[in-house]
């Protein structure tokens, strides 16, 4: 069967993502600003072509390209790249690409191995607007889990590096304390106490300095602050060996934020919308189908993650390991479709 234009484009996108991955690897090693920019640009061009490929396939098949595993994997990679480009635009953290790009390439490789023929005739059960809602939200949720996974790997690498160089997170956080802190003799008080601002002082300067140290202003303003380090707009550093990686605190927060975005999307899209659709198509909200069981286990896991974090205060390394394990379950659930049957066997 001759390759359709969208599949030709898919291969172009695949090679561009692979090239971008190589650029990001060089960037991670050399921290060269131009290499970082090139990596992002190549990824961006790949993303544009990927968008065209998906749209073309949509037009060719006459239905949203979410009807089989190849289309789902391709869409997942598209969402992951979109998430990275958003982070790059919002936070100027080019280094995140070093960790997102290999995962994107891995997902695209998965997609490349799957049958790519266009399903001209969508089977009757899939002819529903719920296909849109269910699949796209599930893919978005899993895309967010993918970002949490990549950021968690970064967290563990940075933490390992800090251990090797003898710098602790406590010290890193200590550098973020405000100027002119007033010690307060309260048992169990947070270190640092209250920031004192005297009305006769020119506090703006001290706060400018403070915000620069915290390193969050770049994040909020797209890296336009002065002294923002290298030209690639990376983290200005937190006074430790941070180098090109963002601070542990920021990585931990992005990890949590990605899960906090992915969890409701996955819950509503994969579980709730899927259940409603199943009720409309098959007569029962839940039928313990292999894919449903996989989704339920993913949900159980990320529910446990959130409880551990919010109730037990699991953050940092523990949360990073949980995110990595969670995404492993997502991948297992995805690949499980290749061997297991059930109501989702056609995907």
């Amino acid at each position: 069967m001759p390759e359709t234009f969208d599949i030709k484009l898919f291969w172009w996108v695949y090679w561009l993502y692979l090239a971008s991955f190589l650029f990001f690897t060089v960037f991670g090693a050399t921290r060269g600003v131009r290499v970082g920019r090139a990596a992002t640009w190549v990824l961006g061009v790949g993303f544009v072509l990927h968008t065209v490929a998906l749209s073309w396939r949509w037009w060719l098949s006459g239905h949203v390209p979410m009807a089989n595993m190849y289309e789902y994997a391709s869409l997942l990679a598209w969402f992951a790249v979109l998430s990275y480009l958003y982070i790059e635009w919002r936070y100027r953290k080019t280094i995140v690409g070093t960790f997102v790009a290999p995962v994107v390439v891995a997902v695209m490789t998965c997609a490349s191995l799957l049958p790519k023929e266009i399903t001209q005739q969508l089977m009757p059960a899939l002819q529903s607007y719920w296909l849109w809602i269910h699949v796209s939200m599930a893919a978005l949720g899993e895309g967010a889990f993918l970002v949490a996974f990549a950021v968690s790997v970064m967290y563990l690498i940075r933490e390992l590096r800090e251990k090797r160089t003898g710098l602790s997170e406590v010290r890193a956080h200590a550098s973020m304390r405000r100027p002119a802190r007033e010690a307060v003799a309260v048992p169990g008080a947070a270190p640092g106490g209250v920031t004192v601002l005297d009305v006769d002082d020119d506090v703006d300067e001290s706060i400018e300095q403070l915000m620069h140290e915290v390193g969050t202003r770049d994040a909020k303003r797209g890296g336009k602050s002065r002294g923002s380090g290298n030209g690639a707009g990376n983290d200005p550093g937190d006074g430790t060996d941070g180098g090109v990686l963002p601070s542990l605190r920021l990585l931990d927060e992005i990890n949590y934020r990605a899960v906090a975005i992915g969890y409701p999307l996955f819950t509503i899209g994969a579980l709730f919308a899927g259940a409603v659709w199943a009720y409309e198509a098959w007569g029962s909200f839940w039928s313990w189908d292999p894919k449903e069981v996989g989704a339920l286990i993913i949900w159980f896991f990320y529910t446990a993650y959130l409880h551990a974090r919010l109730q037990r205060g699991w953050s940092g390394r523990r949360a990073a390991w949980l995110s990595i394990a969670g995404f492993a379950i997502v991948i297992l659930s995805f690949l499980g479709n290749l061997w297991l049957g059930g109501n989702h066997a056609y995907t």
């Binding site: 169990g188 601002l197 009305v199």
Partner: peptide, 17 residues
């Protein structure tokens, strides 16, 4: 009690306002 403010991560004191 202002001393409790030390427990909170974001706290400021402005003197002579």
């Amino acid at each position: 009690d202002p001393r409790l403010f030390a427990h909170l991560p974001d706290s400021y004191r402005l003197n002579r306002v």
